[in-house]
């Protein structure tokens, strides 16, 4: 055990943090897209779309992110699809969180009061216009708080990608643990770094929520 100041550990860990941020950003982007598609699919009037969305959500929510990661990394090559670890990581993070996000999107759209939909129909809006101009803009604000949780879970899940040798924060920590034996210092720094990013993410999302709900009449319900 040694208590040397941990400053020399910071540069490599920060490089790892960069990779973690890339993974998280890529994952969030994919997650938002999938959540929107699958969430809209779940409330769609077209049965096959609904089934597809349901199957996707159930599979990715019903199995572990780590199992999904191993499947993408170890099993897909059997089918001739070899993914770079980084790409496999972003794909699994996005697919996994997207399934949780889909439920958020579905819930938020269904929570928009029914009168809004009826009013849009009465005014002759097409279904597409109703969705894009009436339902989604109102749903987005109530999506943000639960989405913030989904993003934080994604950030935390990004640590898993270290086991398929993506050089993220966790991976760098493991390497330095092995050759410096300063376990306490390394893992304490790593915990604090993850926590800081999670706090930043959650603050950013509540800022966004405040911005988007500014001047909006939420029908007397305080969101």
């Amino acid at each position: 055990m040694s208590f040397a100041p941990p400053f020399d550990l910071l540069p490599p860990l920060l490089v790892g943090l960069g990779k973690t941020l890339q993974l998280t950003a890529g994952g969030i982007l994919l997650c938002v897209l999938l959540a929107l598609f699958a969430g809209l699919g779940k409330v769609s009037g077209i049965p096959p779309l609904r089934w597809l969305a349901n199957i996707y959500v159930e599979i990715f929510r019903g199995t572990s992110a780590l199992v999904q990661l191993f499947w993408f990394f170890f099993v897909l090559p059997f089918f001739g699809v070899s993914l770079e670890p980084m790409l496999a990581g972003i794909l699994v993070l996005g697919l996994n969180s997207g399934a949780y996000g889909a439920e958020v999107v579905r819930g938020a759209i269904q929570a928009v009061s029914h009168g809004q939909k009826e009013a849009a129909t009465a005014l002759g809006f097409t279904p597409r216009q109703t969705l894009w101009r009436i339902l989604l803009p109102q749903a987005v604000v109530s999506m943000l708080p639960p989405m913030s949780n989904v993003f934080i879970e994604l950030l935390k899940n990004s640590a898993l990608v270290s086991v398929i040798s993506v050089h993220d924060l966790t991976f760098v920590a493991q390497i330095h643990r092995a050759d410096s034996l300063r376990t306490t210092a390394i893992f304490s720094i790593v915990l604090v770094l993850y926590f800081a990013v999670a706090q930043g993410l959650s603050r950013g999302m509540s800022f966004l929520e405040k911005r988007l709900s500014r001047g909006r009449d939420l029908g007397g319900v305080k969101a």
Partner: peptide, 22 residues
């Protein structure tokens, strides 16, 4: 609560596994 929820389970697992024995 915030700290435990804001950090990955994997790191907490490593922390227990590698740090506590020291």
């Amino acid at each position: 609560i915030e700290f435990i929820r804001g950090t990955p389970l994997l790191i907490q697992l490593y922390f227990f596994y590698y740090v506590l024995p020291e």
